[in-house]
Simulated assay, not measured.
Amino acid sequence: MTMREYTEKKETCGTICLKYLLFIFNFFFLLAGGAVMAVGIWTLTEKSDYISLLSSNTYMATAYILVVAGVVVMITGILGCCATFKERRNLLRVYFILLLCIFLLEIIAGILAYIYYQQLSMELKQNLKDTMTQKYRKKGEEGVTNAVDKLQQEFKCCGSHNYTDWEDSDWIKSPEAFRWKVPDSCCKTVTDSCGKRDHPSNIYKESGCITKLENFIQEHLKIIGAVGIGIACVQIFGMIFTCCLYKSLKSEPY
Score class of each variant (00 low, 15 high):
S169A: 09
S169M: 04
K129D: 13
K135N: 15
T191I: 12
I172T: 01
L151S: 00
S160M: 03
G195A: 05
D168A: 14
E167I: 10
C194G: 10
S169P: 07
P200W: 02
Y204R: 08
K150I: 05
G140W: 01
G195C: 07
K129R: 14
K173C: 02
Q153C: 05
D165P: 03
R137G: 00
K188D: 04
T133N: 10
C186K: 04
Q153S: 12
S160I: 02
P183C: 09
Q152A: 05
D130G: 06
F178E: 13
L128H: 08
T133C: 13
S207H: 13
Q126S: 11
S207Q: 15
S160T: 08
K138Q: 15
G195P: 09
N146R: 14
P183G: 08
F178Y: 12
N146W: 08
K150T: 14
E154A: 13
G195K: 00
E167F: 10
Y163I: 07
C194Y: 09
Q152V: 06
D165N: 10
D184G: 01
D170R: 15
D184T: 02
P175M: 04
K196H: 10
P175Q: 10
Y204A: 06
P175A: 08
C194A: 12
C186I: 02
C187R: 01
S160R: 01
K188T: 06
F155P: 07
K173H: 12
S174W: 08
S207K: 15
C194K: 09
N146C: 11
S201H: 11
S169Q: 07
R197W: 14
H199F: 14
D170G: 10
C194P: 10
S185E: 01
T145H: 05
C186M: 00
F178M: 11
I172G: 00
D198T: 09
N127M: 07
D149E: 07
C186L: 06
C209L: 08
T164I: 12
V182N: 01
K139A: 15
N146D: 12
S174E: 02
H161K: 14
F155L: 11
R137F: 01
K205G: 10
K196R: 15
T131L: 05
Q126Y: 13
T164M: 11
D149M: 03
C209P: 05
S160C: 10
S193Y: 15
W166P: 01
T133P: 07
H161V: 13
K139M: 12
F155D: 05
T133L: 07
R137K: 15
L151F: 04
A147M: 00
R137C: 03
Q126L: 11
Q134E: 15
Y136P: 03
Y204H: 15
G159M: 01
V144N: 10
M132P: 04
C157A: 03
C158S: 03
V190N: 04
N202Y: 12
G208R: 07
P183Q: 06
L128W: 03
D198L: 04
E206Y: 15
K173D: 03
T189L: 14
Y204Q: 04
K188S: 04
Q134A: 14
D149G: 00
A147I: 02
